[in-house]
Simulated assay, not measured.
Amino acid sequence: MTRSSLSPSRYMSEAKSSGGRRTRGTPGNPEDRAGEEIEYASQKALRDTWVSRTRIFLAPYFAEFIGTGVFVLIGCGCNLTYTVLTTNAESAWMATSFGWGFGLMTGVFVAGGVSGAMLNPAVALSFAGYRGLPWIHVPFYFLAEFAGAFVAALLAYACFAHSLDPFDGYNRQISGPFGSAGAFGNFARPFIGNGAAFLSEAVGAALLVLGIFAITDTNNFPARSATPIAIGFLLTGLSLSIGYPTGGSFNPARDLGPRCAAAIWYGADVFTFHGSYTWVPVAGPLAGGILGATVYEALIVSRRAVVEDNESIASSEHRSISLE
């Protein structure tokens, strides 16, 4: 088959006898074909420019940056709303849990088709270890997620700065009845030690990653197009169930990025408060994420995988019997 027979111009030529209507099967004008080939070459050259290649290369990292930013902006906005507008912020825990869940859902919708929407260093590390995410992406995903969370916290503060002024009398405080730093970086409750807080964060992150692995496993019972919704409600459920003692971060970038932003207004004490608590919401989720991924991959065998394995064994046995 010749190249001209495959050309779209074959079906786009116009016959004078048909009054200018397009007819199929009429050979196109050679000049038209030449013009189309020139236009195609120019478009290909445009796609092959350095700017275009760079944009394609950076697309996953920008997706992680924006997706994490959307997630954190919605979550921090909910925290600040119920910190400033309620007399008892503790009673708003259910509302903020749903806010963070909706934020994660929106972030996954934004970035899922481009980067996979890790939006969490613990998830990215787990997917690199067990789901084929190239390791070369991992440090850049970490940086993009941290940067997205940091910028989102700055935007959240900018939106609420004038609301915070009458709340605390222009005196930014970390804790106490007028403390608001917890709307950015998480802090364990005063009666929770760092060891217990580490365990809580690790268990929460393990359940989060285990749930995400199950939701996205095509050999199990995948949520498919409802994946962002399922993951959002997964985070909400974890926050409502075991997140209260520590604030339910389960995400190093979600905590460290806003904490660094909060240090601009609350000072360096945000890193040393509560027995230098900063390491807990970073190390806990990373350890828990690997644990959750390992448990799923080692112990959860989907029904479809079992059926396929049994069919493979039966087929091999049938071949051996036939040979005998």
Rank of each mutant, 00 (worst) to 15 (best):
L6A: 08
S7V: 00
E14L: 07
G20I: 05
R24Q: 09
P27S: 05
P27I: 02
G28D: 14
G28I: 05
A34C: 10
E37R: 12
W50T: 14
A59G: 08
P60A: 01
G67M: 01
T68Q: 00
G69R: 01
G69Y: 04
V72D: 01
C76E: 07
C76H: 04
L80R: 02
T83A: 14
V84K: 11
L85D: 15
T87A: 15
A92D: 11
L104Y: 05
M105P: 13
A117I: 00
A117G: 09
L119F: 01
A122I: 00
L125M: 04
L125W: 01
R131T: 06
G132A: 03
P134F: 05
H137W: 04
A147L: 05
V151M: 02
A153L: 05
S163N: 06
G169K: 03
R172L: 13
P177Q: 06
A181G: 11
A183L: 05
R189K: 11
F191M: 11
I192D: 06
A197S: 09
L207D: 05
L208W: 05
I212V: 14
I212Q: 02
T216L: 13
F221C: 10
A226C: 12
P228T: 03
S239F: 07
S241D: 07
F250V: 00
N251Q: 01
R254E: 02
L256P: 06
C260E: 03
A262S: 15
F273R: 04
F273T: 06
S276N: 15
S276G: 12
A293K: 01
V295W: 04
R303K: 14
V306R: 09
V306N: 08
A314V: 11
S315F: 09
S316E: 15
E317M: 13
S320L: 15
S322T: 14
L323D: 13
